[in-house]
Design a protein around this nucleic acid. Structure first.
Lengths: 127, 127
DNA sequence: ATGTGTGTACTATGCCACATAGTACGCATA
DNA sequence: TATGCGTACTATGTGGCATAGTACACACAT
């Protein structure tokens, strides 16, 4: 379900947060699904329970999951989370696009890339 | 010319590398322009010369600048650098777009974002 | 009541990247 | 010669990250 990339420069707890965010937003983990227990995940990934706990704490603060003492952690049904996640992604995209524009990347290359991924026909080529 | 953002999680030397990469690729720093000296920049930014030196070392290894002992560091005229930088950026963009698609972002939002940044018409660009 | 599994909190420790401080050397140029 | 340049080296301090270990409160099945 979850894996760690030790080549990734980001800390482990952050990778876990990001991974679960995606799984939840995409609906692979439906609302009220029980999350793997802190200790269980720690055993499987061969890392310290504290690290998982830290990730879960962040996920809870962000509204992705909710925790119940003695029972476990569960996926939140909060719909706003998904929208907020999309919003953040769009801001990230905008930042990257600005960077590319400053680099001098031509818009045609960008449009081609967008078409390739989203497989759409853009309204019309700007004339 | 150069500034540091201490809010940025990236290390200082990496920010400097990125900043100069942009300035060089955009042509703001033309080939054979002399780079600010290590000690001078260190004084202005109130950081250690070693940190600047580290950044310059990376920039040289990547082909953005070349250093001459006793004289200084200068902007490289290597054209391949610019193209390679664009190439890397496009790959980064593609990765982000896939992520957004998986998140369920609708293509219209993406198209709007692209248009907003790159503009509808793009006849002339800075040269 | 007991045992097991859960989240949570806390302290202590080690590691490592980063940045700094200080010094020194070789080289180019005025 | 004096100055400024890049470069190299050692030593030190700091902070984030991860670990180790322990402990507590709670839910649930037995």
């Amino acid at each position: 379900m979850i894996s760690i990339d030790y080549q990734d420069r980001r800390p482990i707890y952050e990778q876990i947060v990001e991974r679960y965010q995606t799984l939840i937003v995409r609906g692979i983990l439906p609302p009220d699904t029980q999350m793997p227990s802190v200790r269980q995940t720690a055993l499987e990934l061969k890392i310290n329970p504290n690290t998982i706990s830290k990730a879960y704490g962040i996920l809870e603060r962000e509204g992705f999951i909710y925790s119940v003492k003695g029972r476990g952690s569960f996926v939140s049904g909060n719909q706003n989370v998904r929208d907020r996640k999309k919003q953040i992604w769009l801001e990230k995209l905008e930042g990257l696009l600005f960077e590319g524009r400053d680099l001098g990347v031509d818009s045609a290359s960008v449009a081609a890339c967008v078409d390739r991924v989203f497989g759409i026909k853009r309204k019309e080529e700007q004339s």
